[in-house]
Design a protein around this nucleic acid. Structure first.
Length: 521
RNA sequence: GCGGGUGUAGCUCAGUGGUAGAGCGUCACGUUGCCAACGUGAAUGUCGGCGGUUCGAAUCCGCUCACCCGCUCCA
């Protein structure tokens, strides 16, 4: 990993100040002191985020893989869904989230170590209900030996195995915990009571707030796809291999929200679950991994700040253990540098999820797919490219932030034109002599043509330098200026954000100019 | 969860117990007319919040909230 970046690492504080100043991102509930792990998007941020989501929707769902054929030589097929944030809680039992997202943790005030409560065992002398208890990490011989040694020292004699009683830490009473010595502690009573880190948010649909009515806010959008797999198969004409895609909010009660919007408790995902025959899973995995990497590059996250990283075996998620692997598309954020933070994970989930839902006791549905061509019934394997929309936005903001002492704004946002929240601006050089009228008409024309892609600004106030500078900070790629000559020869000056170059184009060519620069031909 | 830091106008920050400030930005008017120019003027604050000490608190004390950094944690 290279420690040197071709671009100086920007200060996160400066970027955050710009995001506030220009209306990209605000702290959620700011007027009440904020709320940890939540962020709101302002006018420019909302459009930036929409543009990234739309780019994904277009390139992944509507024109899958930008028209590139899959490894089988056929066009890639994807259909969209939009599923609920709240589902029957059994969905999350089957998926493993209820068990996996509820690990009670224990902290040690002395050693500062944190343990999973269900990984801690305790030992003491058989029959002794008043003496000290010693905790150790389950299946850790060294930790066990340490606890035995501490007990022997406390009892002032070597106890035999037969004199030892063990039990899980979670079975101890509060009083017993007070006389328990932590695995890495010397004093008793330094362990906190086991605390559940509820990584899923609870909610209670219906009038009665009762455990029987407990439901969860989804921690990932993926399960909404898996539980609709049969519906999609039955009601559309898709055939394996194909993908189901959706974007939407997900919620995780992160222990430590950090780093601006990077680890938020409420965030938006863009996910595809791509189903294929197990024999083709490896090829599809490699295909998606490589194409997703190139997609992020195509949106301006090029260069050394973006890497594709294959997971080591020991960091694979529970659903990916059996699969062909997991890769991350990672971006070098200022706060991770020189290391990288995940933008998107491409995982081979094998048939983990379909199997889990099919096998859940409360589920009656058969999810096997009958493949006519192969004359074979099977549970498809699944390749999951799962991207973080908010992380993509954050990476785009970081990448776009370009200090430039030579220009009045001292900084400009070099967004890819496709992502830029303001597509173009129109300025009358002087707010009189017929220039505003010409400008307003041009702005209206551009709005009609490009308004669905982003804002078209019209600004007749103050001197031209200020207006250019404002657009630089907003990341607007093109500014059209109407001057005296425009009235006579029907031409305008277009000023390019990145190069500051000015070019004279005819008024009726202005829309074509923007279309070409946006890649719309 | 632990340790350190920060919190005053939209942004950056000054203000160590005595009337709430500056620069920039924003807005208006004038002038100018291709890069935050110039002139005049204006708006904008629960000094993060709550409580305490004090005749008097942005300032001292306690608690709390949020953000940043380092741990820890994170399928």
């Amino acid at each position: 990993m290279s420690e040197t970046s071709p671009k100086p690492t920007i200060a996160m504080d400066d970027l955050m100040a710009l995001c506030k100043r220009r209306g990209f991102i605000y702290q959620a509930s700011e007027i009440y002191g904020g709320i940890q792990g939540f962020w709101d998007y302002g006018p420019l941020g909302a459009q930036l985020k929409k543009n990234l989501r739309d780019a994904w929707w277009q390139d992944v769902v509507m024109n899958p893989c930008q028209g590139m054929a899959g490894p089988d030589g056929n066009p890639v097929r994807i259909v969209p869904v939009d599923t609920c944030i709240i589902q029957n809680p059994k969905v999350w039992e089957a998926s493993g989230h209820v068990a996996g997202f509820n690990d009670p943790m224990v902290d040690c005030r002395e050693s500062k170590a944190r343990y999973r409560a269900d990984h801690l065992m305790c030992l003491g002398e058989k029959g002794d209900t008043s003496g000290q208890i010693y905790a150790y990490v389950d299946n850790d011989d060294k930790s066990y030996a340490t606890a035995r040694k501490k007990l022997d020292k406390y009892k002032k004699r070597a106890l035999s195995d037969a004199e030892i009683d063990t039990c899980p830490l979670t079975s101890l009473s509060a009083d017993e915990l007070k006389v328990t010595v932590g695995p890495d502690a010397s004093e008793a009573g330094t362990l906190t009571e086991p605390r559940a880190f509820n990584l899923m948010f609870d909610t209670y649909p219906g009038p009665i707030r009762d455990e029987a009515n407990k439901a969860y806010l989804r921690p990932e959008t993926a399960q909404g796809i898996f539980i609709n797999f049969k519906n999609v198969i039955d009601t559309t004409r898709v055939k394996v291999p194909f993908g189901i895609a959706q974007t939407g909010k997900a919620f995780r009660n992160e222990v430590t929200p950090r780093n601006f919007t990077f680890r938020s408790r409420e965030f938006e995902q863009m996910e595809v679950e791509f189903f294929c025959h197990p024999s083709e899973a490896k090829d599809w995995y490699a295909f998606w991994r490589d194409w997703r990497m190139s997609w992020w590059k195509s949106l301006g996250l090029a260069g050394d700040n973006l890497i594709l990283r294959e997971h080591d075996k020991d960091e694979l998620a529970h659903y990916a253990k059996e699969g062909a692997g997991t890769s991350d598309v990672e971006y070098r954020f200022p706060f991770t540098a020189p290391r990288f933070g995940e933008l998107e994970g491409i995982a081979h989930r094998s048939n983990f999820d379909l199997k889990a839902h099919q096998n859940h006791p409360a589920s009656t549905v058969k999810l096997e797919y009958f493949d006519q061509e192969r004359n074979e019934r099977y549970l498809p394997d699944c390749i999951e490219p799962s991207a973080g929309l908010d992380r993509g936005v954050l990476a785009s903001l970081c990448e776009a932030y370009t200090p430039d002492e030579s220009r009045p704004s001292k900084v400009f946002m070099k967004f890819h034109p496709r992502l830029a929240p303001i597509k173009a601006a129109v300025f009358p050089l002087v707010n009189k002599d017929g220039m505003p009228e010409v400008g307003e008409k041009l702005a209206a024309d551009l709005r009609k043509r490009f308004g669905h892609l982003g804002a078209i600004e019209f600004d007749p106030k103050q001197n031209i330098g200020k207006r250019y500078a404002r657009m630089d900070e907003a990341g607007c790629p093109f500014c059209f200026t109407i001057d005296g000559d425009s009235l006579t020869d029907q031409t305008v000056t277009v000023r390019e954000r990145d190069t500051l170059a000015q070019e004279r184009v005819s008024l009726d060519r202005a829309a074509a100019y923007v279309a070409e620069k946006l890649g719309l031909g």
